[in-house]
Each structure stands twice: as C-alpha cells, then as structure tokens.
C-alpha cells in the first residue's frame, strides 16, 4: 500500500480516539506500552525505552505523528520503533505476519486521533 503523501490521512474515515486509546493500551495489538508510557493509568506496567506519549499531541501535528507511526525509520534509521504500516523490507518475518503490516490503515488513523488528544 503506497500512500502518495505519507503525511496525509490513510483512510476517509476519521480516526477514533477511543479506539486509538484501546489499541495503544493493548499489549498484543499496539505494543506501544512495552516501550512508551502513556496517560493510561489502568495499565500498570509501562516501558521506559522510549519517550512518554503524554503531550504527543502538543509536540507534533497529526501528519508528523502519522509519518512516525507508518515508518519511523524514515525519520531515524537507528530508531527502535517498529514501522507500523510498512509491509516490506524486513528480514525473517514469521510466516503468520509475512507481507502484513502491524496496523491496518484505520488503526493508524485511530492511534493518531488518540495521540492528538494528548495535549
């Protein structure tokens, strides 16, 4: 899936912040809290490998967040952040995930919408 401009929304349906929050909180879907902390108090154990997501919406525009989620290595090749909406250029991907992106386009939009609420 090639978006003409990476920064533009990937879907016509606007992202839903509530669904985005649930994705971020889910340790099997978003995996975000393994590395980041976020203002999601009911999730007790949050990682500290990466910056806190608190305030992400005031530090970035939606387009910047989207770009980072889609493929953070475009911005920083050394980044440990996975590329959530890139399907190729990986090595040894497990057969179950081969050719698939971590997030669907709509999930990217939902997470962006949630992060934009973190002012």
């Amino acid at each position: 899936m090639l978006a003409p401009a990476l920064a533009a929304p990937l879907t016509d349906t606007p992202g839903d912040p509530a669904r985005g929050r649930a994705i971020v909180a889910n340790r099997q879907v978003g995996l975000c809290l393994l590395c980041h902390s976020a203002p999601i108090p009911e999730e007790r154990f949050q990682g500290d490998l990466a910056p806190s997501l608190a305030g992400a919406g005031s530090r970035n525009t939606a387009d910047q967040l989207r770009e980072r989620i889609i493929d953070s290595r475009k911005l920083n090749p050394q980044s440990i952040m996975p590329s959530y909406h890139r399907a190729d250029g990986f090595s040894r991907v497990a057969p179950a995930q081969a050719g698939k992106t971590i997030f669907t386009a709509q999930q990217v939009e939902d997470v962006v919408a949630y992060l934009m609420t973190l002012k």
Partner: peptide, 9 residues
C-alpha cells in the same frame, strides 16, 4: 545485530 521480524528489532 541484524534487525529481524515484523517488529524489525
């Protein structure tokens, strides 16, 4: 040192 898998780590 090789990044591997869908999480690319």
């Amino acid at each position: 040192k090789q990044r591997i898998g869908q999480l690319d780590l």
